[in-house]
């Protein structure tokens, strides 16, 4: 199968799974925005998603996307390290015009995954999984807004997430145009255009996420709004 046994094939898998994850991020960011303006609306979306069959199917696909993206990332990197040979350069300079992120995608990716694990433990574990398997009996799996706001009231949690978004931003700025390049959707004319589009897009996504985190902190951590809670 060329998607696994050729270098370009493996890269296509990385690209397609990456673009799919970008789509997910876009959706996730839009959904989060609701929370700033109406916790009820947010909960309604959570309720609509919940642990229904179609959400579970989508979650499975999403998980597969993540897993494939991550496994291929490690696989490719191992191959690349091997291809580099045994001796390393004593002096190494990043050439002009080469983005730092492009040479550190794995590191950025690992940062993203580590946060992802925390993030899952904070929310997915207590929501979808809880709804399915009742792993946290004392948490209401349907009260997403309460869960989220409770976390983002803390400044350090917001700071932690902001670090994550920065890593994500770097990851996306290279990942986006690089994915299009890898599936062959590029040429001299579109080269800079895709880079600009990718940068704008990554910035919108990351700013969107950051806005929600900061806004929640300001609303509930600084201004001291009361955290709305659904009746259990």
């Amino acid at each position: 199968m060329w998607l696994t046994n050729s270098s370009i094939g493996r890269k296509v898998v990385m690209s397609v799974s990456g673009l799919f994850l970008v789509l997910f991020l876009t959706f996730h960011m839009c959904m989060n925005l609701a929370l700033v303006f109406s916790p009820e609306a947010y909960n309604a979306i959570c309720g609509f998603l919940g642990a229904r069959w179609y959400t579970l199917a989508l979650t499975a696909v999403l998980a597969a996307g993540f897993v494939v993206h991550i496994i291929f990332a490690f696989w490719l990197t191992l191959q690349n390290r091997k291809a580099r040979g045994t001796d390393r350069y004593a002096v190494n300079v990043r050439p002009q015009g080469v983005e730092w992120s492009s040479q550190n995608m794995l590191v950025l990716g690992i940062i993203v995954i580590l946060f992802l694990i925390i993030h899952m433990a904070q929310f997915w574990f207590k929501m979808q999984l809880n709804e399915l398997a009742n792993v946290c009996p004392d948490v209401n799996p349907h009260d997403g807004s309460y869960l989220v706001i409770s976390e983002f009231k803390n400044w350090w949690m917001v700071a932690l997430y902001l670090v994550w978004f920065v890593a994500l931003w770097f990851h996306l700025t290279h990942g986006f145009w690089s994915a299009l390049h890898t599936i062959g959707f590029n040429n001299n004319t579109w080269f800079n255009r895709w880079k600009v589009i990718g940068n704008v897009f990554a910035t919108i996504i990351c700013l969107g996420f950051a806005f929600v985190a900061v806004a929640l902190y300001v609303q509930y951590g600084v201004l001291g709004w009361e955290v709305p809670q659904m009746a259990h």
């Binding site: 370009i8 091997k82 492009s102 040479q103 290279h174 040429n187």
Partner: peptide, 29 residues
């Protein structure tokens, strides 16, 4: 045993003949 391209662009930046990175997109295509 050559590695997998991750589009860092270091190759084109260091190429003594300035061969363009867009060739890689064409090869992919």
């Amino acid at each position: 045993g050559f590695g997998n391209c991750t589009n860092t662009g270091a190759c084109a930046a260091e190429c003594p003949k300035s061969v363009s990175l867009s060739n890689i997109a064409r090869l992919n295509r």
